[in-house]
Amino acid sequence: MAHRVDHEYDYLFKIVLIGDSGVGKTNILSRFTRNEFCLESKSTIGVEFATRTLQVEGKTVKAQIWDTAGQERYRAITSAYYRGAVGALMVYDITKRQTFDNVQRWLRELRDHADSNIVIMMAGNKSDLNHLRAVTEEDGQALAEREGLSFLETSALEATNIEKAFQTILTEIYHIISKKALAAQEAAASTAIPGQGTTINVTDTSGNTKRGCCST
């Protein structure tokens, strides 16, 4: 979902939050979109989403962040959840080893459902609970490097790195989109017969249609 609309924003990017139940997905969402943190949030069952419009390299980008249930049995009903997503924030809880060990399973889930070009960032959340830490930052970093993901430790409670995490994802998506647009432009230019005034429609060829940039 990366459409380009003329009016309020240049791009709409859909980003999904994934990770085990209780790692703090919902609070990451509310921190980023409303700058709120709620100690008493309800467990998420269906799909929740919120948006925030921000500037990425001079473009107005509307980030649409999706959040859903983390319990394992819910994973099979989420193919619609991933549809059109161009970014994913994969979250674990630094105080719960199990949630970190499950990151591999979430990665498989992404590879199975999401577009192969999806931008993935891994976030070790609850960095404010350093005294309860069960996963070192080095372990997180090492896994991220092995899997080729960006990585940050975050705290939705203290608003640490939340902004940075999304900015990183959105910028990376924007780079991919602009590269694609450029490539498509060049491809269109090389096949077009010169001198006939062919209009190169960047919007269309870059995949910025309603189907989303990465849909196949």
């Binding site: 069952i45 269906g46 799909v47 009903i77 619609a80 959840y81 189907r211």
Partner: peptide, 18 residues
């Protein structure tokens, strides 16, 4: 390309209570 399960999963599993 809207799948009804995006909203209806919660309805059917929580029986609308949420």
């Amino acid at each position: 390309e809207f799948d009804v399960s995006l909203v209806a999963t919660e309805w059917f599993l929580c029986l609308f209570s949420k």
